[in-house]
Design a protein around this nucleic acid. Structure first.
Ligand SMILES: [Mn+2]
Ligand SMILES: [Mn+2]
Length: 307
DNA sequence: GATTTGC
DNA sequence: GCAAATCAACGCGTC
DNA sequence: GACGCG
């Protein structure tokens, strides 16, 4: 029986095919997570997680799971956090064994909070989720690069990953302190400025109808108990694509695809997020004109200028 | 996948 | 003892 | 209360 981090973990049904289009098996999934653990864990450690399980393969609906079942071994770390009307206990990934155990549990995709248990109400990053309306990925790349410059001008240090699906996540680590509300307001102000500069292609509108096919700048991940796909998590799509941290230079290339690298092809890459931990910067203050108005409501950016 | 329930 | 049944997600922000 | 998202 294989021993990882001092814990015996048996992968049952290792030859079960979880990705029918590619023949990718549960055993391959477990090997991938074991292989990538060293890269992944620094970014997910201490973050409550949600599990997407596909025991019969990705052709079936996922089992969504937030709570840690009692059947999980005691050595898997847990965090009990406050929710409206009570508490909930989530699993934490802090070692390779946990990742392999999750594969045994048929967890294909993990989503994690934007805060860590040491300060669960205060995020350690601000996230911009670039959600394209269609398959035009070049606008996503171009927008990410513009956003990079904006964030650098604000003395932040932005990083980027593919989502393994259709978009990109641009994040900037921040000095822990501001609340989720403060970080959300900052992200919203930046997103509105970004969208206003290219209202034909970008929007912050909440309703799909008002987006009119434009790229949605989603800042609503910046909130308590909200999650985003974890870096290096596997997506439930053909090819087992992963949410891949990339270097900014890669974003300049039209060869970059949001779902372009699957678990069979993540190998021998430099770590583009190596410097993340030492890149935390203070959240910039909002200027007076960016403060929310008396109604407290934020505004979407529409195609035709309104004001 | 793991555990509980029913025969 | 063995097979069937049961459970595993819902919270935040916006409109 | 529904929408949108994860
Ligand atoms: Mn997204
Ligand atoms: Mn989104």
């Amino acid at each position: 029986m294989p021993v990882i981090d001092g814990h015996s973990i048996t992968i049952t049904h290792p030859d079960k095919i979880l990705f029918p289009a590619d023949g990718i098996t549960k055993g391959e999934l477990a090997e991938y997570y074991q292989r990538i653990a060293g890269r992944m864990i620094p970014h997910v450690r201490d973050r409550p997680l949600h599990m997407n399980r596909y025991p019969g393969g990705i052709q079936w609906n996922p089992i969504q799971q937030k709570r840690v079942p009692d059947s999980f071994p005691a050595w898997i770390e847990r965090a009990t956090v406050d929710m409206k009307g009570g508490t909930i206990t989530h699993a934490l990934i802090d070692n390779t064994a946990t990742l392999v155990y999750l594969a045994q549990y048929n967890v294909v995709t993990v989503h994690v909070w934007l805060s860590r248990i040491q300060a669960i109400t205060q995020p350690d990053m601000v996230m911009f989720d670039l959600d394209p309306a269609d398959e035009d990925f070049s606008i996503v790349r171009k927008t990410a690069l513009t956003l990079k410059t904006m964030l650098e001008d604000l003395k932040l240090v932005p990083f980027v990953k593919t989502t393994g699906s259709r978009g990109l996540h641009v994040i900037a680590p921040i000095t822990v302190g501001p609340t989720f509300e403060e970080v959300h307001l900052f992200a919203d102000a930046v997103a509105q400025r970004l969208a206003a500069a290219d209202p034909d292609h970008l929007t912050t509108e909440f309703t799909k109808q008002k987006r009119e096919g434009r790229l949605f700048l989603d800042v609503n991940r910046n909130a308590y108990a909200q999650t985003a796909v974890a870096p290096y998590a596997v997506r439930a799509k053909a090819g087992a694509p992963v949410a891949l941290p990339v270097d900014w230079s890669e974003v300049e290339s039209p060869r970059l695809r949001p779902d372009g690298v699957g678990i069979r092809h993540v190998e021998g890459r430099d770590d583009p997020w190596k410097s993340m931990e030492r890149s935390q910067k203070p959240l910039p203050p909002l200027t007076v004109s960016q403060l929310p108005d008396r109604s407290g409501r934020r505004k979407g950016v529409s195609r035709k200028e309104v004001r």
